[in-house]
Amino acid sequence: MKISNSFIAHSDGKDTLLVSTGTSDFSGLVRSNASAGFIIKCLEKDTTENEIVEAMIKEFDAPREILERDVKKIVAQLRKIGAIEE
């Protein structure tokens, strides 16, 4: 899975923002904290939830189950707005 073509990840200098193009039905903007921003960055290339968790373990000082839960939650939210291409 990866970020759909109809979404673009963009940094406003502080946060990673996920913005839809004109073709998407979703017309909002997703502003993310550090871990969600990291997950979005991972999703710019084709990947899996497991790969993202492995990458996060190297980056963040947090227990695996917390990171797994975060990844699951963020991916589910992104999927809900049509931002994920399987």
Partner: peptide, 14 residues
């Protein structure tokens, strides 16, 4: 920023 993004024309072409 959120309002600017809402109010600008969003092209279809990435």
């Amino acid at each position: 920023y959120p309002m600017l993004i809402q109010q600008v024309y969003r092209p279809s072409d990435p």
